[in-house]
Design a binder for these strands. Structure first.
Lengths: 256, 256
DNA sequence: GAATGTTATTCTATATATTGAATGACAAAC
DNA sequence: GTTTGTCATTCAATATATAGAATAACATTC
């Protein structure tokens, strides 16, 4: 995130943008960092950075080790996350459906929230008890246009091709589809209401996604099903149908 | 948190204190709130509050609904929490021990982080597969001095009685112990290295806690075991012994 | 053990974030 | 249909958070 400067300048509360950048950096690094290295990394003035850190420490969002003078994320961030999880309407409604699908088909299911063309965040997950299982974690971020979810977002987001193409070019796939193929698959998703990624994103792994709307416009969320290739091949048509149904019913519940 | 003013004034980055207060308020309320009500609740100037909110929205920590003009927590907080969970040393080391204890004794176990005399936060949890089970959630906050953890903190924190007593008086228990009884139990915890709450905090529920140190001074964390009264009565001595052992071994690992 | 490159931290002048009043937009009450 | 209250939002003056140099405390290197 090198455009911190822009964000800071644009805002009337720049300290908050800096604080968020610090939190994200500490989260990404994982290991504790000193004032100077944080400041250097984010292009901040060390003294300013110090004040930001002190404020975050006071809020228990950042932990300070007096011996090593290093800073790291603290448990306060958990409390916020828990509060969010507890009250998010999509999550509450999606979880039972995700559990049901995971169990019935022996797969991993996800609920994700869409942030425009930038990225998606996994907000709910369910796994069947089976032995081998693809897994991710709640809170993970992925590029918006990748895999099955990406085709969904492209299909139902009404974005001009000029916005899509450059982002598409920067994606990382195991087996990247050509732009033409991808567009065809997006078109198919638009018609059927479900998107499929058959081993493109991760070789040998099939990902299915159906869009969920909260209000009108672009889809705000999506339901995702992940299965190891051969395991669900025969069930694929039925899974697509069921996933689409679950997504539609969720959208209806979110309207009210 | 009515001392927001103090925190704001003391800091050189007051916007961060305000932002944190807003996030916590939104977390506590759960339901979306308007600028005005947030400002009123926190004693902020509405215009300032608006700028804070806009900055938080830009960071995806707060979601803004343009139709209703309401603000609520957003999924960004999850990403931070995940990063923290992944890298917290105490959590990584404690989880296997918690799982083992939960399974062996058929109980619920917790790892908590201590924030002085203010509060503790649950950062790890393990539950046995049994039918009836007390449960809480990762991220929950409790007053520092309550239940078994409270006796641990009082026993090993080296706090003067003058700091403890007023806080003790404000606690809520199902069956509050008298100050004298509580002090005796704290003393016992100091001698044995394990604290027990036998139905005081929640009637019929036994809670056991052992302190964990990260460096010297007051305990930074604690391991907690929770069981429905009668179920673990016969096992209690052994559980105390095992919990203390796990806590000690954790403390040693955290030293390095 | 002196010298050099780090580091965290303090200090002060100045650019700017914050304030509180003013505006506009909306809904409820009359 | 007007009035009244509440809402989000803008604006300009000023209190203040920030930047950058200076300091102090380390390691590391020579």
């Amino acid at each position: 995130m090198t455009n911190l400067d822009d964000t800071v300048k644009a805002s009337k509360a720049p300290a908050i943008a800096r604080a968020a950048a610090v939190l994200r950096l500490l989260g990404k690094r994982g290991s504790p960092m000193g004032v100077q290295s944080i400041a250097r990394e984010l292009g901040l003035v060390p003294s300013t950075c110090l004040y930001v850190l002190r404020a975050l420490v006071a809020e228990e969002l950042v932990a300070f080790d007096g011996d090593t003078k290093r800073y790291a994320l603290d448990a306060g961030v958990l409390t916020l996350a828990r509060a969010w999880l507890r009250r998010d309407q999509f999550n509450d409604l999606a979880q039972p459906a995700l559990d049901r699908l995971a169990r019935e088909f022996g797969i991993t299911t996800l609920g994700v929230q869409v942030f425009g063309l930038d990225h998606i965040i996994v907000t709910a997950m369910s796994q069947s008890g089976q032995n081998f299982q693809l897994s991710t974690q709640v809170g993970s971020r992925f590029p918006a246009l990748v895999s099955a979810t990406g085709r969904c977002i492209a299909a139902f987001g009404n974005y001009p091709e000029g916005d899509l193409r450059p982002r598409f070019e920067h994606l990382r796939w195991d087996e990247a589809p050509s732009w033409e193929n991808w567009c065809a698959q997006v078109e198919e998703a638009r018609e059927t209401g479900v998107a499929v990624d058959a081993g493109n994103y991760i070789a040998g792994v099939t990902v299915i996604a159906a869009p969920v709307w909260k209000g009108t416009g672009s889809p705000s969320h999506a339901l995702v099903a992940i299965g190891i290739g051969a395991a669900l091949r025969s069930e694929l048509p039925r899974l697509k149908e069921v996933l689409r149904g679950a997504a539609r019913s969720l959208s209806e519940q979110l309207e009210g």
